[in-house]
Design a protein around this nucleic acid. Structure first.
Lengths: 140, 140
DNA sequence: AATTTATAGTTGTATGTACAAACAACAATG
DNA sequence: CATTGTTGTTTGTACATACAACTATAAATT
């Protein structure tokens, strides 16, 4: 078992990268007062008012229970509201939710800028594509 | 704001990949009765008996508090023991800890096999290298 | 030697996320 | 229409992990 052998393990390198970039994302989103994932969810809601939770789950690649919790938080922050219709919950932005959109987009662009500057824009794009592809290939 | 735009966000793709590969790792390590990260820690301890917690933190890229909790768990499972010496804790494997090593290595190889088969071995290696590099570049 | 600063670890608490089980609404089939 | 299955959401619980504040030891400086 050689030294530094963890570097050769995808599980490890990906998890580490995940921690690092998550911290960067929190940094970028801090001014909005919303954490990154909640922010993305909010943007999805603004992008498609009335979106259902399963659609959110699909887009965000998260489990329904997690989505419930996240929507709860948006609601409790006054940024969104649930309109239950039969078995489906439709999520709509409130006025406050609509208003926070530009700030969220700014945070997102900022995040992009920060990691692109550190990685090189093209390298960043390539890595994004590669991780997206890999995630698709592995989830089977 | 285009459709499917989250795919172009490194934060997102990396987090998704992290979730996917973490689940695969849990699968591979399930037979050992130890979760992947605890397993890696155990291997590090076997690899260098008497290793300090800060060294573990460094290798695993995790915070000291997390290391404390993880070591606690190894100890409570009877796989390792702390020998406190001044302000430093030295972690040693117990007999049970030593004995679980081969099974852990098997699980680890299995994980490698599974994702290599799905990604292609060379592609997997390339991605591992790329994520490792990126994590290094971003943590500044 | 006394005081300050740095290092190693721990503890309390919080967050993100998942799974499993439950529940509620709808669909399909006898 | 009664039952059985399917789908969407929720709730209880659990785990990995982090941060901030704390304690304890060691090192450095006065």
């Amino acid at each position: 078992m050689p030294e530094k052998y963890l570097e050769n393990c995808l599980y490890f390198t990906v998890n580490k990268l995940s921690r690092v970039i998550s911290k960067m994302a929190e940094e970028s989103f801090r001014p909005t007062g919303i954490t990154p994932t909640h922010g993305f969810m909010m943007m999805l809601v603004n992008n498609k008012p009335g979106i259902s939770q399963s659609e959110l789950a699909e887009e965000l690649h998260m489990t329904p229970s997690t989505i419930t919790r996240f929507v709860d938080k948006l609601v409790s922050k006054g940024l969104a509201e649930r309109k239950v219709q039969g078995k489906v919950s439709h999520i709509h932005p409130t006025q406050a939710g609509i208003e926070v959109q530009t700030e969220l987009e700014k945070a997102w662009k900022d995040l992009y800028r920060v990691y692109s500057d550190l990685l090189g824009e093209e390298e960043g794009k390539a890595l994004t594509k590669a991780t997206h592809l890999a995630a698709g290939q592995l989830e089977s």
